[in-house]
Design a protein around this nucleic acid. Structure first.
Lengths: 263, 263
DNA sequence: CGAGGAATTGAAAGACTTCAATGACGGTGG
DNA sequence: CCACCGTCATTGAAGTCTTTCAATTCCTCG
């Protein structure tokens, strides 16, 4: 991890839809931040907190989650390096979910005040960050499909696919292999299944030689089969947005609609 | 429905966090729009479409949904009058979901171009609409808890609670009674259960005298029990945001954090 | 080497789905 | 006005998936 450039991953993420204005890059890069190391299972934000900062994840993994019915924990998102885990709190300061680390993690806290100021100065930057929250919402929708319409093995396969795709996009899953320092219980809480059942499903995937998953490290052995099991389609992640709009033709702005096909 | 003021419900919704600037109200009210009546089960936006307009719902209900595994349909959101159902397409024009009407509905289409122009001119307005998408995302998270961590009757109860609360917020569920012109299959698709099972669960709720649900109309008979069954807490809806910030004390801005408790 | 968390296993119970049939209802055409 | 039709709601029974409980084994770390 390049500690020297804490915003680099975030910036390259934000630029997948097109280059930022140089001054917007400056605004991001100039944001004050506070680096923090947190241990495993550290609760960074608690449900109900009023936040005054955003948490940019530099290294490790986070999840947001909430307790339902007294004891059952539902994980609603995973965050990987380059993600701002609680960007929502910028305009909805009360945290509806808790945010905790899965494994040791390195964070950069950015004060809301500074971020708001930057966004007030640049509507183009605000737009880019808005879009980032929309992509996160799109991931939530996909999880909804996952929990609502797939069986346990489909859910697990889908989560692994998504994680792989996201990690690849930030260069952390070369060779379809990555570290995943969380427990089967964590995975189960994301899939909405019991940890016992999660274990059995993982074993099925191992038996099928689709994945290896040992000592906190996952290796995908048969991506195509995994994708098929999961019914995975990466479009919702907008990972390849940059590829789509390659031709930077002047006079041909992206997503142009004008009054063209208005109903 | 006041056809004369199509934006009134949206405006009052947007103002629950605090009054809009007069010029921002003007910008919204001045937006061009095209009124459209659609019949039951009309697909307004299809998965994969590139949108050039947003759909403000004036009357009736919509849902967004997607097909999983060939045949199973998962509903991921309901929309009620005053909602902009596809605000996300403003900056993520490719629709990841389909949008269809549940029962006859009245829509106002607003071209992206006009909306973008308004938002470029006013960063305060952009902020308010951004927040609106964040609230929608917060609803998605709650649905995630629903599908991942509640049993069938809890899911159904929760959806009814949410719908009731949202409809009440726009004055459409006086006396805890409202029209719900969709089928048990639709409800089942939102809960991620089979329609047969949905039917049995509805009957349980009827037997417990918690709700009445006949001929497309729901009446809540025992709100407290329903809330308990659902584990419902309306905070995530931000319905009561306006109430919270009643004291408009000058010099005491809402959600002020400054450098105060910065970690 | 011991302790504690994590993973694994088996067996029984429970929740939900599927299939298949029947009943209820509203709207249509004759 | 009534028979007919299609959609939606309801029911029963069998089968599948998942949970729960309770051990047991494995691993990691101090």
């Amino acid at each position: 991890m390049e500690m020297g450039r804490p915003y680099s991953r975030l910036l390259s993420r934000l630029e997948r839809f097109g280059p930022l204005l140089p001054e917007d890059r400056q605004r991001i890069a100039g944001l004050p931040l506070k680096l923090v190391n947190v241990p495993t299972d550290f609760e960074i934000v608690s449900h109900g907190d009023i936040s005054s900062k955003c948490s940019l994840l530099l290294d490790g993994f986070l999840c947001s989650h909430k307790i339902v019915t007294g004891s059952r924990r539902q994980i609603t998102s995973f965050y990987i390096p380059g993600d701002v885990a609680d960007l929502t709190t910028l305009y909805l300061p009360r945290a509806e979910q808790s945010l905790t680390s899965l494994g040791p993690a390195v964070l950069a806290f950015v004060p809301h005040a500074a971020l708001r100021e930057a966004l007030d100065q640049s509507s183009s930057l605000a737009q880019v960050l808005w879009r980032e929250t929309l992509v996160q919402a799109s991931i939530l929708q996909e999880w909804l499909l996952n929990l609502g319409s797939r069986d346990a093995s489909g859910r697990l396969a889908h989560i692994v696919c998504e994680l792989t795709a996201r990690l690849q996009a930030v260069g952390l899953a070369r060779d379809f292999s990555f570290s995943m320092p969380w427990t089967q219980t964590d995975v189960a809480d994301a899939c909405g299944i019991s940890s016992v059942h999660a274990n059995r499903v993982i074993q099925d995937l191992r038996r099928l030689r689709v994945i290896e998953w040992e000592s906190r490290r996952v290796k995908i052995r048969d991506w195509d089969t995994l994708v098929r099991l999961a019914g995975f389609n990466d479009e919702y992640l907008q990972c390849r947005a940059a590829a789509v709009k390659e031709p930077h033709l002047p006079g041909f702005p992206q997503n142009f609609d004008g009054a063209a096909s208005f109903v």
